[in-house]
Design a protein around this nucleic acid. Structure first.
Lengths: 137, 137
DNA sequence: CTACAGTCTGTAGCAGCTACAGGCTCAAGA
DNA sequence: TCTTGAGCCTGTAGCTGCTACAGACTGTAG
């Protein structure tokens, strides 16, 4: 089973290599159903084509943008059903954007506290420490 | 077993209530060893005192600031061993701060991509969508 | 004495992977 | 032709930090 049939089909390692996805992650995506169960060779080896490649890339891009798997599944279902509209997708994107902004706000609050507390540290070899004091208070 | 012996000792629910910690989380912290195995009544009910209260508050504050459990365990070990120095704690805090800042940077990158892509959406009831295009590209 | 709130234990589930072990298959070299 | 080794297969366990449940027991108030 040569992997060199250019642009025709791939095995798992080929798909992983072309997408940068971890080998096991592909199987995981199939198991949870965001990637379809692929066809197999007689001996059970998975066979992927360009449609799998495209779908996996979609998933990976969405994950990079912080979309949860269930949100991605939703987007894929919309497209698969042909029922997607820009209005709907925009709304989902903006909901996710709001989540991202909330996380940023949370982290910035944390950053401020950490930075200002650490700034009070002498950094000396003494047991007293403003950070510990803040945590213990 | 009355819970009203003021300021002397507490049961699990009392500790939870005073710290805002979830009941089950306390047991979890004991299981993983960041909280000590508390003494028990004859019938096996946990008994907590002010030292447990203080330790749990320390843990919860540190968690709020995003410290991982293992980092918190490390800080608590330092203090318990009496070997803590401001220098050491400051260094650990700044390492964590760097992690937090890296996460913020990551989320801001995501935020920018999401915002700018969503801004290109017409928001109309049409199947074409810049967000989907960006994910599929 | 009974009802009910509270506690006890172990275990499973969440997200999103990642990494094994143990067995099979396939192609290339000797 | 046989062997070697890479690659594939499966199921399952582990990671972080909880949270929730079931089923049994205990302790107290009426």
């Amino acid at each position: 089973m040569s992997d060199h049939v250019s642009g025709k089909w791939l095995q798992r390692a080929g798909l992983a290599q072309r997408t940068g996805c971890n080998l096991e992650t592909i199987r995981y995506y199939e198991k949870i159903g965001v990637m379809p169960d692929p066809p197999r060779t007689a001996s059970g080896h998975r066979i992927y084509d360009d449609s799998h490649l495209a779908r996996l890339r979609f998933i990976l891009r969405a994950r990079e943008l912080g979309f949860a798997i269930e949100q991605i599944r939703g987007l894929l279902d919309l497209v698969a059903g042909g029922t997607q509209t820009c209005a709907e997708v925009k709304e989902r994107t903006e909901r996710h954007l709001a989540d991202v902004r909330a996380k940023i706000a949370d982290l910035r609050r944390i950053e401020k506290v950490l930075a200002s507390t650490a700034a009070q540290c002498s950094g000396d070899e003494v047991p007293e420490c403003p950070v510990l004091k803040a945590l213990a208070s």
